[in-house]
Deep mutational scan, measured.
Amino acid sequence: MQRVNMIMAESPGLITICLLGYLLSAECTVFLDHENANKILNRPKRYNSGKLEEFVQGNLERECMEEKCSFEEAREVFENTERTTEFWKQYVDGDQCESNPCLNGGSCKDDINSYECWCPFGFEGKNCELDVTCNIKNGRCEQFCKNSADNKVVCSCTEGYRLAENQKSCEPAVPFPCGRVSVSQTSKLTRAETVFPDVDYVNSTEAETILDNITQSTQSFNDFTRVVGGEDAKPGQFPWQVVLNGKVDAFCGGSIVNEKWIVTAAHCVETGVKITVVAGEHNIEETEHTEQKRNVIRIIPHHNYNAAINKYNHDIALLELDEPLVLNSYVTPICIADKEYTNIFLKFGSGYVSGWGRVFHKGRSALVLQYLRVPLVDRATCLRSTKFTIYNNMFCAGFHEGGRDSCQGDSGGPHVTEVEGTSFLTGIISWGEECAMKGKYGIYTKVSRYVNWIKEKTKLT
């Protein structure tokens, strides 16, 4: 034993070699072989497995989906700052455009905790909710729209109204504003409101030439003092309507412009014939205590009207009353817009006519005020429907199939267009061939041609 100890002390290297040989010859039971080890760690190889990531292109799944990435790591994937920024906006807080917040056709661009709407022409605001041009839906104005110097929408209202708090709607500024039905039992019968379409306001006024200088022999019209197929109006439903009495009662109609003036057809009036105007009328054979009678003290036909040349060209006249009318729910003026808007309103496509005229061709006159909704007829169809001249200051309205029309005794009465609950004068009943005849239409004086003249002559002093 002493000898062994001496050998170990003198030859430590020998001992180490012996131990190493023993270990190498022993069977290893701690580690699995290569094949079995792979069965336990069965993990798919990654895209760049075996390579240094710093030297390969980034992978979106590896960089940002398996674990949260930084902007720089995302930049490695896209290799483009702009594309990385677009991805980053949604990656950080989701897609803010998912709810489609942009209105009126706006395009949404996502941002971090926010979004941006790219608005089409005519709109602005956070969600493109603000109209900035009158060309689109009248700028959301209830009545009139004008573009300011910086191309912003400025709404306005006709006389007797003021802008509401929203700067879009119009509200009454006087007790009985024009064009409004205020009798409670008839307010439910107000005709369907007309909503502004998209309009090209630059070209809204037709490029028409008034044929002022045409000389033409007097034409022989049949029954051209021209509501057939209409309905009984309720008291106060058309408070701007008046009836004219002269040699015979209810020979023509008219509309209240203001307390002192009536507008009617020029062919209705004769110099030297006494005319009485009755406002607030409903049943011409009954006294309903809503009527107001006034005498006409002055007749002003349009300066281009000449019955000797043509009885229905420039067929418009103004009547001055001896005493002002007292405005109330049964006696209310009709609204008159400017030339541009009167023309736009007419193009809405349908209007209402009213009167006490004959209820059928050569038949009896109506006792109760009649009204009828009539569609506008395109000019080409209008011209083809008659052998008589249709001037540019006239328009056609009615039904091709016949059966409904204005008729004798309705002449001078109103053709009105309702705009968001307020009625505007767009025409004056003038003439036609018979009444409600198939293929024939009622012919009306186009008020847009005469609004400046009306307003100039009827100013209240």
Rank of each mutant, 00 (worst) to 15 (best):
N104V: 01
E433M: 08
P44Q: 10
C28P: 05
F78P: 15
R404K: 02
G398Y: 04
G58V: 15
S411V: 14
K39M: 12
D378V: 03
Q90P: 11
F224L: 13
E129D: 05
E35Y: 08
V56N: 15
Q216M: 10
P197S: 12
G357Q: 14
E159V: 07
E285V: 10
V257D: 00
G280P: 02
F144K: 02
N310S: 13
C252T: 01
C102P: 00
Q2G: 15
L425M: 04
C396P: 02
G105N: 06
A37T: 15
D95W: 05
N100C: 04
R83N: 15
W431V: 14
C69P: 04
I112Y: 07
E98I: 08
T287S: 13
I210V: 12
I334V: 15
C382L: 03
E208Q: 07
E320P: 00
E420F: 13
D131C: 06
S217H: 08
K438C: 07
V248Y: 11
C128D: 01
I297C: 05
G246I: 04
S184M: 05
E231W: 11
G413I: 09
N151G: 10
I112P: 04
D200K: 12
G412C: 06
C119Y: 00
F251W: 08
C252N: 02
L460Q: 14
N5G: 14
E76L: 15
P301L: 12
P324S: 06
F424W: 13
D378G: 09
E129H: 04
H303A: 08
Y441H: 06
T215S: 11
V248F: 08
H361Y: 13
S25P: 08
K137Y: 06
K339Y: 12
T386L: 09
D410C: 11
Y330M: 09
F348T: 15
W118L: 15
V77N: 15
V174P: 02
G280T: 00
E323F: 11
S187N: 06
C145W: 01
Q370V: 03
Q57S: 12
G272K: 09
C108T: 00
G253Y: 05
C155H: 00
C145E: 02
I214K: 12
A37M: 04
N38S: 14
K188A: 13
S187I: 11
L369N: 10
S11I: 14
T186N: 11
H314G: 04
K152S: 10
V227H: 06
V377L: 09
T264G: 02
G412W: 08
D200R: 11
E456K: 14
E72D: 15
F55L: 10
G21R: 04
N343I: 04
S423M: 13
R191D: 09
N151K: 12
T16I: 09
K39T: 10
C382R: 03
M6W: 13
G179D: 01
P375G: 14
F251S: 09
E53N: 09
Q2D: 07
L319T: 01
H415R: 00
S49I: 09
T271Q: 10
F395A: 01
M65C: 05
N310E: 06
G402S: 14
I297V: 09
E270C: 08
T332N: 04
V451F: 04
A397P: 01
F121Q: 15
N135F: 05
